[in-house]
Design a protein around this nucleic acid. Sequence first.
DNA 1: AAGACGGGGCC
DNA 2: GGCCCAGTCTT
Length: 348
Amino acid sequence: MGRSKHADLNSLPDRLLAWYERHARDLPWRIGPANRAVGERPDPYRVWLCEIMMQQTTIPHGTPYFFKFTERWPTVEALAAAKDEEVMSAWAGLGYYARARNLLKCAREVAARGGFPETEAELRKLPGVGPYTAGAIAAIAFDQVAAAVDGNVDRVFARLLALKGDWAAEKKVIAERVRQLVPEERPGEFAEALMDLGATVCTPTKPNCLTCPLSELCAARAEGNPERYPIKPAKAAKPVRHGIAYVLQSKGEVLLVRRPDKGLLGGMLALPTGDWVEGDFPETPPPAKADWEEVGEVRHVFTHFALRFKVMRAELARRPKADGQWVTLNAVEGLPSVFAKAFKLATK
DNA sequence: AAGACGGGGCC
DNA sequence: GGCCCAGTCTT
């Protein structure tokens, strides 16, 4: 069995759950330990929604969106009945817009089948639900013995086990190790506890080992430098692309376009732009003939490149024929951040 | 296995 | 300017 090869983590679940009872984060979508103990369970819709929303998203940034969505669409059936543009607009500013497209697709599948599936394997088949989210929903909403391994859990275990190998390979080791540790009782709280520990104690910088319930089990702590972990590969430098954004106004309205579903900012409302290219600003034809003035430059950083928009503005007495939709200036909403920045620069 | 895919806060 | 965050999907 090679037991000696592994740290002895048998006591981890009990230590962690005892800690969680006293230090659980109070989150809007969560049923706390006291209420869980008397049998209360969270609404699967809210669990699913928060898990999708918080993917690669900080809690402070995502929380207002959670409130907005649950107030506007209190049930999965209500969300399933929403229009695509409404949901995309409500998601604007949260990023990773494929999540919003999959959210709606998933809501419609779930509403059609009469509710959420309850097992990890079935949940995994839903659009936008990957290994982490399937485990989280199964454990938290349905008390299934499933693991939810997110970035917090990866970091906690990288330190617990002092993992020094290739990070992609070590993450697989972690997933398997966590799966072995999920307790039959309270699997949902185990998942929440592990994430809370990573978020509040075993933090990326300056982990607070003095208050950690797992410090006695931690190999990185024993080595004396937990901050060294996890050891990840260096990231490639981001190239800079250049583009031109056009703010065309007429009669108190502005011309907006809908981006295609696939690709960057897919399905989102946008300003007309041409190609975004490396090197220098491209020769992009404007959406209409007008007296264009340059109002400034907007910089924005995406996941794999940085963007510089030259922002052009023009106003025409009569609306020209142009592709897109005209939207009242005061009613402009639902723009991704980069376009919101450019629009604001041109209209203030 | 490697890239694409947002955005904001923090150092 | 780089890192991180309740990751997933595509190629």
